[in-house]
Computed example of a mutant assay.
Amino acid sequence: MKVAVVHEWLVTYAGSEKVCEQLLLMFPEAELYSLVEFLDDELRFFLHERSPRTSFLQHLPFAKRHFRAYLPLMPLAIEQFDLSDYDLVLSSHHAVTKGVITRPDQLHISYVHTPMRYAWEMQQQYLQGANLKRGIRAIAASAILHYLRMWDVATANRVDHYLANSRFVAQRIWKTYRRKATVVYPPVAIDRFQARSVRDDFYLTISRFVPYKRVDLTVQAFTRLGLPLVVIGDGPTREQVTSQGSSNVVFLAPQSDAVIEDYLQRCKAFVYPAEEDFGITLVEAQAAGAPVIAYGKGGAAETVISGKTGILFNEQTVDSMVSAIQQFEDGQFTFQLEDLRQQAERFSPDRFRQELSQLIDQKFAQFRAGDAIH
Score class of each variant (00 low, 15 high):
Thr114Phe: 12
Ala274Arg: 04
Leu148Trp: 04
Tyr13Trp: 12
Gln123Gly: 06
Phe209Gly: 00
Leu25Asp: 09
Leu25Glu: 13
Val198Met: 12
Leu132Gly: 10
Ile144Gln: 11
Gly296His: 08
Ala141His: 08
Glu17Asp: 11
Arg53Phe: 08
Arg266Thr: 06
Arg65Trp: 14
Tyr212Glu: 12
Gln128Val: 14
Pro211Asn: 05
Ser247Tyr: 10
Val5Asp: 00
Gly129Phe: 06
Ala140Asn: 09
Phe45Cys: 00
Ala181Ile: 00
Met1Val: 03
Leu25Met: 14
Ala164Ser: 14
Val215Arg: 03
Thr237Pro: 00
Lys297Ser: 08
Val6Asn: 01
Pro273Ala: 12
Gln362His: 13
Glu284Met: 02
Arg266Pro: 03
Leu148Asp: 02
Arg214Ala: 11
Ser197Glu: 15
Leu10His: 04
Phe56Glu: 05
Val5Pro: 01
Leu47Lys: 05
Lys98His: 15
Asn165Ala: 06
Thr237Phe: 09
Ala189Cys: 11
Leu163Cys: 04
Tyr295His: 09
Tyr272Cys: 09
Glu21Ser: 11
Phe45Ser: 08
Glu315His: 14
Thr114Ile: 11
Arg149Cys: 07
Val271Gly: 03
Ser207Cys: 11
Leu145Asn: 02
Ser92Val: 07
Phe278Thr: 03
Arg103Leu: 12
Ser323Tyr: 13
Tyr177Val: 08
Leu107Met: 03
Met1Asn: 04
Phe27Cys: 01
His48Glu: 10
Leu148Val: 06
Glu239Trp: 09
Trp120Tyr: 13
Val153Pro: 00
Leu264Arg: 02
Arg346Glu: 10
Glu31Arg: 13
Leu90Cys: 05
Glu29Leu: 09
Trp120Glu: 08
Ala253Arg: 13
Asp41Ser: 14
Leu23Cys: 07
Val283Met: 10
Phe67Tyr: 15
Tyr111Pro: 00
Ser357Thr: 14
Thr54Met: 08
Val304Asp: 04
Ile173His: 03
Val36Met: 03
Ala63Arg: 08
Arg103Tyr: 09
Ala287Phe: 05
Ala130Phe: 12
Asp371Gly: 06
Gly289Ser: 06
Glu345Arg: 14
Ala154Cys: 10
Lys2Met: 01
Glu315Val: 09
Lys133Arg: 15
Arg179Val: 08
Tyr185Phe: 12
Met150Glu: 15
Ala372Asp: 14
His7Lys: 03
Ala274His: 01
Arg172Asn: 09
Gln358Pro: 01
Lys180Cys: 08
Leu204Glu: 00
Met74Asn: 04
Ile311Pro: 01
Val183Met: 05
Asn165Asp: 05
Gly99Gln: 07
Thr281Val: 15
Ile78Arg: 02
Arg192Cys: 11
Val169Asn: 00
Gly233Asn: 07
Pro236Ile: 13
Val153Glu: 10
Trp174Lys: 11
Ser110Ala: 15
Gly226Ile: 03
Ile78Thr: 05
Phe270Arg: 00
Thr176Ser: 09
Cys267Leu: 06
Thr182Tyr: 02
Val292Phe: 04
Pro52Gly: 06
Val259Trp: 11
Leu25Asn: 10
Cys267Met: 05
Val271Leu: 07
Ser142Asn: 14
Leu148Met: 12
Gln342Glu: 13
Tyr126Arg: 04
Pro61Gly: 04
Lys268Gln: 12
Gln366Ala: 13
Ala365Glu: 14
Pro273Glu: 04
Gln326Ile: 15
